[in-house]
């Protein structure tokens, strides 16, 4: 299978933020068949999103190896060398040996295990989804809170229309010439959310219960949300207008001779 390696290497070396870096001892990267033994080799590791790169040194310009961290679990392990704090990245794929890595100390070990176990795209997507829901709920209760004072509610909603906040993003780099800037992450979420559940591990499970949309899966994009809140406000407004109108009518009726 081919991979767009030049682009991957470019991404590895780009100034986009690394999620974790440090020296780790390794006993052979992907594709090695031998059982880990001996002192291994100390390499510089860079975690970027769901990709773990290793380099000869901190200044290395070509990655030695790449591990795509989808569908894996990270566990503490015994190192073949004493005084090393090891862990493995284990994949649920046929014929794949777990990768053994070791940090210099317990703190580094813990930090790596934490960072790696939360590195999958599915986890990130779940957190984003959770926050999407939270924001919707927060705005909803805000709108309800202001329901009796619909004017205030409406103007606040308006001022928070998020269209201006998030322009010119295209897969993580700005595209000045793009005539079609990507707006907010919105309705076009692919239908396959099920796949996000595939690589759920550890902390992600905490999110699942609340991560499901309590209202409807379709309300999680901003334009839909905006209309949705809008409807509520329109309704409040309609009621208010009707009442006001009735009041006026009643008043008129009363005033009639």
């Amino acid at each position: 299978m081919k991979l767009n390696e030049r682009s991957v290497t470019h991404y590895a070396l780009s100034d986009s933020p690394a999620d974790h870096t440090g020296f780790l001892r390794t006993w052979g990267g992907p594709g090695t068949l031998s059982t880990p033994s001996g002192p291994g080799r100390r390499c510089w590791f860079v975690l970027k999103g769901n990709l773990l790169f290793s380099f000869e040194s901190r200044e290395g310009r070509a990655p030695l190896s790449l591990v795509v961290l989808e569908g894996c679990t990270v566990e503490l392990a015994e190192a073949p060398v004493p005084e090393e704090f090891a862990f493995t990245i284990r994949f649920d794929a046929p014929g794949v040996r777990p990768y053994l890595l070791a940090a210099d100390g317990p703190a580094a070990q813990e930090a790596w295990v934490k960072a790696l176990s939360r590195a999958s795209f599915g986890y990130m997507r779940l957190v984003v989804r959770e926050l999407e829901n939270q924001l919707r709920d927060a705005r909803q209760s805000l709108a309800l809170h202001h329901g009796s004072l619909w004017k205030a509610g409406a103007s606040r909603c308006k001022s928070q229309a998020p269209n201006h906040c998030f322009r010119g993003l295209e897969n993580g780099h700005s595209a000045p010439n793009d005539s079609n800037p990507v707006g907010l992450p919105d309705c076009s979420r692919p239908s396959g959310w099920a796949s996000a559940e595939w690589d759920l591990q550890g902390p992600a499970n905490l999110l699942l219960g609340r991560g499901q949309s309590p209202v409807s899966p379709e309300t999680s994009c901003f334009s839909t949300l905006h209309n949705w809140y809008g409807q509520e406000i329109m309704e409040l407004r309609r009621g208010w207008l009707q009442r006001a109108q009735r009041g006026t009518l009643e008043l008129e009726n009363k005033n009639r001779p």
Binding site: N50, C165, N171, G172
Partner: peptide
């Protein structure tokens, strides 16, 4: 539309955006 949203970098920006917005509305860090 799907491809433009299919990157980790995009997810990261979305997350930071939502986090910021929720803080504005509720005053709490989600």
């Amino acid at each position: 539309a799907a491809l433009r949203r299919a990157s980790y970098e995009f997810m990261r920006r979305s997350l930071v955006f939502y986090r910021n917005e929720i803080q504005k509305v509720t005053g709490k860090d989600p």
